[in-house]
Computed example of a mutant assay.
Amino acid sequence: MADNTLRYDDMSNENLVIKIKKEEYETPGIILSSHWHDQIQFFYCARGNAVIRCNSKEFEVSDNDFVIINSKELHYIESVSEGLTLYLIKIDLTFIYSNKADSIQAQFLTPLSQNLILFENVVRNDESLLRCVNRMIHEYFTKEIGFELAIKSQVYDLIVILLRGYIKKIYNESELKSKMLLLQRFKDVIDYIENNFTEKIDLEKLSKIAGFSKGHFCRLFKQITGMSAIDYINNLRINKAFDLLKNSDLNITEIAVSCGFSDSNYFSRIFKNHKKISPMQMKKQSM
Results as ranks from 00 to 15, higher is better:
39 Q>A: 14
36 W>V: 03
38 D>E: 11
32 L>S: 13
40 I>H: 12
46 A>G: 08
41 Q>N: 09
51 V>Q: 10
48 G>E: 10
47 R>M: 13
35 H>G: 13
55 N>F: 01
58 E>N: 05
51 V>K: 14
35 H>S: 13
33 S>M: 02
37 H>N: 15
45 C>F: 07
31 I>W: 07
35 H>R: 15
32 L>Y: 08
37 H>G: 15
29 G>T: 01
53 R>N: 13
54 C>N: 11
55 N>I: 00
50 A>L: 04
60 E>M: 09
33 S>P: 00
31 I>L: 15
55 N>R: 04
43 F>E: 06
62 S>V: 01
60 E>C: 06
40 I>Q: 15
32 L>H: 10
55 N>V: 00
54 C>P: 00
34 S>Q: 03
35 H>T: 11
38 D>N: 11
48 G>D: 07
53 R>C: 11
28 P>K: 08
37 H>S: 15
53 R>W: 06
36 W>C: 14
38 D>M: 07
51 V>W: 01
54 C>T: 10
62 S>P: 00
29 G>R: 03
30 I>M: 13
56 S>L: 01
39 Q>F: 09
56 S>M: 01
48 G>R: 05
39 Q>E: 14
40 I>E: 15
37 H>Q: 13
34 S>V: 08
54 C>D: 00
43 F>V: 02
47 R>H: 12
57 K>C: 03
28 P>A: 12
37 H>M: 14
36 W>E: 10
57 K>T: 03
54 C>F: 14
50 A>D: 04
54 C>V: 10
47 R>I: 05
50 A>V: 01
62 S>T: 13
30 I>E: 12
41 Q>H: 11
58 E>D: 04
37 H>D: 14
39 Q>V: 05
45 C>N: 15
35 H>F: 14
29 G>A: 05
53 R>G: 12
50 A>H: 02
61 V>M: 12
46 A>D: 12
56 S>W: 01
57 K>V: 02
43 F>Y: 15
32 L>Q: 04
36 W>T: 10
43 F>R: 05
49 N>G: 06
61 V>G: 12
50 A>P: 00
56 S>A: 13
56 S>F: 02
58 E>Y: 02
52 I>A: 15
54 C>G: 05
45 C>I: 07
55 N>Y: 02
